[in-house]
Structure formats: structure tokens, C-alpha cells
Design a protein around this nucleic acid. Structure first.
Lengths: 225, 225
DNA sequence: CGCGATTTTGATTGTTCTCAAGGGTAGTGG
DNA sequence: CCACTACCCTTGAGAACAATCAAAATCGCG
């Protein structure tokens, strides 16, 4: 399923490594023509859908190893904006070249299908989060997701810095800033974590998971066929 | 960008046309192995993520011409279930064969990338709906989306039957059944539409759109950089 | 050091959920 | 064909969770 050595090299040749970006820089803006996919190497990036007067819906936070821009393939224009949250290194994969390459390397095409599919699955999970879970469960899910992703990349799963603001977390989770802030305070009081500004230490990951499972069991007394 | 006649024929050869399905039949269930994508020809299908005790999050309603199963490519297992809402005809595209074909027809690969990308874009729109919009705006958006999709397929954009229950609409929009019911009543009182059970007539589409735009302008007094 | 932005905390409001009950509809079986 | 049942939809009353409004505290940056 993976790529052959030889194919990896070919892919490697079309990837562009740009100089580091800084907090506030845009990878692309909503409406701009789609030219490349981006991979975060270090740092973090948020994608968001801007609305008329400065409001925005945060669509995702992207950590090292994660791909950005998949929603732009369809109409060759970006549907959202991508902004760097901290000094970051981001690679660029010109999509035209990539697509051409993937017609010649079936396993590359396969990986791309999987990546796109994974993104859909992830979005669907978020739909359930926003559709069914309460504030507490949303924040727990968010922290556990970060934890898992840090861990996979070899960082500490229980001690990390948030590169995004409370406001951005709130937007992502469909909550008001104040609610997010209060939840951090409460989680700390309950001994679930230690929070100091952007610095988070998860003290009881199991109990955080419990918050999610508890929800699953809340379920529904109302059946639906 | 479109497919050549010859290619359409090849694609056509791998598509399986099954006998009609009936209300309540499953196309697939969460966890079952992924074998094919499905296209609705007539009727309608809902996809949903079942939770432990019978609860569910409805992920989408699929009308004729729409594709189902894209989120299963990644781990070759379905992440959600798909259930037929009314007597429907659904075609099956064995994914293995499709993928093999798409390695040989670049434009087919391209279309597939676009389709997957479109799905991501659509899910992101739903995230904004669930994250930022109130009940009224959600129902308006839902009705307008149905209207648009019916229209594209040559059906009336302002007079149609809902194949899903209030409960399912509520689940899809992150609302309680009662809220959905009350909103239908209110929209009718306001002359926006006429509703009689499953039969919907949109009387003032422009004003429905206005409900969405109004929201966009509500926006945020709180800037976020 | 001081200004602006961010975060926290408190008080209040409000939208939506929950609980409860009635009426309607469709499907089933006698 | 009718009665029965199960589900679906609607409506009302009250509760609750989170939003909003307001203001103070803290932080980061020039």
C-alpha cells in the first residue's frame, strides 16, 4: 500500500520547501486560485471561513504532518483561508504536477484517495461533535485530539502549548470565548488538567476520555426506527 | 475536463444496477467492509453515525445523482450506516474496479479528486452551519439546499415531499424534534412556506434566503485579528 | 511603561432542550 | 372494513446550558 522508494523520490522532487512563515501570514485566502496543497512541517496553521464583517468559523487546526487545501480541488479556488498561528515551516505541493504524477503511480493515487477520504471522515466526526455534544464534551474531545496528534509526532501527549487563542478554540468548537475560558478553569479545579495561559498539562487523560464516553451513554431514549 | 465518450462506456461497464430498495433497507452499516460506492438514481438515502443505544447523528440526506460512501475509502470500512428512506434505485460502483480504471483514465481520476474535494467543502459548510447558526437559520438553509438540489434534477424547487422525519431533520441540524416542528409552524405563520406533514411548498424563497444573509450580517463585533 | 488584545470572572438573559401530553396518521391484523 | 397499535408530529410549560453583557485582571508588545 505504501509508496516505493523510487516513487517517494519522484514525489520529493516536486515538493517545494519554502522559507519559514510567521504568525499571521496567510498560506492562501478564500477565493484565491488553487495551485498547491500544503503540508505543515513545523508549527501550526488554522483554516477558517471568513464571514462578511470579520467574523470567522475556524474549520481546523493543522499540526506537523497534516495536509491543507483539499477542499479547493473541486472548483480550483480556495473555499477557506489558511493562516499561520506561529512561526512555521510549510511545504508546497503544486497540485498540477502532483496530479500528473499520480496518474503514473497507482499507489500514489491510492494514497491520495485515502487522504481525501480521511478528511471526509474527520469532518463527519466534527459534525457529530457539534450536533450532539455539550460544551464540556467538546473541549475534552478537542484536548484529546491534540494530545493524540502530538503523541503521534513524538511530542508529549500530556504537556503542550496551545498556539491558538481561546477565541479560536471557541469558534472551532461552536462555543463562546467565555465558555471555553470557564471550562478550562473548571477542568483545572476538577484536577483534569493544569492550565496556565497557553501551557496545558493533561493530568488525567482517562477521566477526560470518560467525559466523552459518558456522553455516548447519554444517548437517546427516543428511538429512530 | 469531462470524460470522453469511450471512457464513459468503460465506467458504465463496471456499474451495477441493482433491483430497487425499500424504506428501511440498508446500503451498508457502520463497520462493514467497504466494497463499493453508491449513486442514488431515484428516491433518497440517509447516512448516519449510530451511537451505542440507538441514538444517531444524521450525516446527510442523499438525493438522485449523489454519491455515497466516500468516507470509507480510508480504512476500507464504513464509518457510518446508510439507510434508504423510501423506495429507491441505487447503483453500485465496485471501488476496486473503479480505482483500477481511474489509474488508466486521468480525467476519471481528476473527476474523483473533485468529487472527494466537493464532499469536504460541503462538510465544511455544515460545520459553519452547526457552529454559528441558530435554529431558524439552520432550517432555512436546509430547505434551500433541498430546493436547489431538486431544481438541479429537474424537480420543482418550491413544491416537494420530505422523505425524512422531523426527528431526522433535527438530528441532521443539531436540533431537537420539537424545535424543528415549532419552526415549521412558525415559518408557515410568517408566510414563508406551506407545510402539511411531509409536503412542503416554499412560498417566499427570497425571504428564506434573507434569513441566512441576516445571519451573515449578525457576524461578530468581536474581531479576531 | 502604557496601550491593546486576550483572558478571566460575574451577573443576567435567552434560545433551545427536556418533559409531558394530546392528536393525527399509517400500517397491521382480525 | 374497522379496530388497534405504534409511531410521528405538534403544542405547552418549565428548566438548563450556554450566550451575552459588563468589567476587571493579565499579558505581550512597541
Amino acid at each position: 500500500m505504501g509508496l516505493e522508494q523510487e516513487d517517494v523520490e519522484k514525489l520529493d522532487q516536486i515538493v517545494r520547501r519554502n522559507r519559514p512563515l510567521h504568525r499571521g501570514d496567510h498560506l492562501f485566502r478564500e477565493g484565491s486560485p488553487f495551485q498547491a496543497l500544503y503540508i505543515v512541517k513545523t508549527g501550526s496553521v488554522k483554516t477558517y471561513a471568513p464571514s462578511e464583517e470579520g467574523g470567522e468559523q475556524v474549520l481546523g487546526f493543522h499540526l506537523p504532518g497534516e495536509l491543507i487545501g483539499l477542499d479547493a480541488i473541486e472548483n480550483e479556488r480556495h473555499n477557506c483561508s489558511a493562516k499561520v498561528l506561529e512561526t512555521s515551516a510549510v511545504c508546497e505541493i503544486p497540485f498540477g504536477e502532483f496530479e500528473e504524477l499520480s496518474t503514473r503511480i497507482p499507489s500514489l493515487q491510492h494514497q491520495m484517495y485515502r487522504l481525501l477520504s480521511r478528511e471526509i471522515g474527520h469532518d463527519e466526526e466534527m459534525l457529530t461533535l457539534l450536533g450532539k455534544k455539550n460544551a464540556e464534551e467538546r473541549l475534552a474531545a478537542f484536548l484529546l485530539s491534540l494530545s493524540k496528534r502530538f503523541k503521534r509526532r513524538g511530542f508529549s501527549p500530556s504537556d503542550f502549548y496551545l498556539s491558538m487563542s481561546r477565541h479560536e478554540i471557541g469558534s472551532y468548537l461552536g462555543l463562546a470565548v467565555e465558555t471555553v475560558s470557564r471550562l478550562f478553569t473548571r477542568f483545572q479545579e476538577e484536577g483534569l488538567l493544569k492550565v496556565e495561559r497557553k501551557h496545558i498539562q493533561l493530568l488525567d487523560i482517562d477521566r477526560l476520555r470518560g467525559i466523552l464516553d459518558r456522553d455516548a451513554n447519554r444517548g437517546s431514549r427516543r428511538q429512530s426506527t
